[in-house]
């Protein structure tokens, strides 16, 4: 069997094992978004208006796909923090001097993070029927695909940031300054419709807006009456490009050999 695929498989397997051996991570990645969803969703309740007539949604409904995205983001990003630990503890070093290519290392890591993110998000999706979301088999499949592409893009983004970083504290700072706004302004928390013009522009330029839209389309079908939501074709195109670019940039970053590979 091809050595590169074995390396990808091995690193992927490692992510799975590590994650499920730390129950606090499994719970943490689900519990806080669930709490956000219930508290913020119920708190804002009726003061929120999106769509009209048949298409009108409660905030709990509106915020549901946003919460799924939050779970994806948290799980994907936190899985890449382990790169910083791996480097410090010496595990990464021993992989870097193996015959495996840097591309396989990146791929194994990103696919691992993606699988974790998708699984966690899918677990949350199981409560979809409780809020009246009925999905057909095809609907589930498209939703899963949307989770996968989004998860891949976010893990790639996390990899790119974690690769050269040498402290977990630094990573948390970046997470707060960059990643949280990325999520806030993706349409996860509020639609672009009622936002200020400048904010609308930020949202238009945010690649995650399209990931969010792809997910919303998959979950809500044509029910969403939001004028500002990018159409499915555009959403899928942008999120696929986003995922691809993250993969390429991560592979590029990892292929640069430097003394900082070793610590």
């Amino acid at each position: 069997m091809n050595r590169e695929w074995l390396c990808v498989y091995s690193l992927w397997l490692r992510e799975m094992k590590r994650f499920y051996r730390q129950p606090s991570r499994v719970i943490g990645a689900l519990a806080s978004p669930l709490m956000f969803w219930i508290l913020i969703g119920s708190g804002i309740g009726r003061s929120f208006q999106a769509g009209t007539g048949e298409a009108s949604q409660s905030y709990l409904e509106y915020f549901f796909p946003g919460t799924v995205m939050m779970i994806l983001l948290f799980t994907a990003i936190f899985s890449t923090i382990s790169i910083i630990e791996d480097r410090r503890e010496g595990f990464l070093q021993s992989v870097l001097v193996s015959p495996a290519s840097r591309g396989s290392i990146v791929m194994g890591k990103i696919l691992g993070g993606t699988s974790l993110a998708v699984t966690q998000a899918a677990l949350f999706l199981l409560i979809a029927p409780l809020i009246g979301l009925r999905l057909s088999a095809a609907g589930w499949a498209i939703a899963a695909l949307a989770l996968a592409v989004n998860g891949f893009a976010l893990t790639g983004l996390g990899f790119l940031m974690a690769w050269r970083m040498n402290s977990i504290q630094g990573f948390h700072a970046v997470m707060n300054v960059l990643l949280m706004p990325l999520w806030f302004l993706s349409g996860a928390l509020f639609p672009a419709d009622g936002a200020q013009v400048w904010l609308k522009w930020v949202m238009v330029l945010n690649p995650l807006t399209y990931g969010m839209a792809a997910l919303r389309h998959a979950l809500e079908g044509g029910r969403s009456g939001l004028a500002s939501l990018p159409d499915p074709a555009l959403s899928w195109t942008v999120i696929c490009i986003f995922a691809f670019v993250m993969l390429i940039l991560s592979a590029k970053a990892a292929s640069r050999r430097s003394a900082e590979d070793l610590q």
């Binding site: 069997m1 050595r3 074995l6 390396c7 498989y9 091995s10 690193l11 193996s98 015959p99």
Partner: peptide, 14 residues
């Protein structure tokens, strides 16, 4: 598992 991981990376399997 650590040994198996190392083996995979070096092209061993099964």
């Amino acid at each position: 598992e650590n040994l198996l991981h190392h083996g995979y990376v070096f092209g061993l399997w099964g």
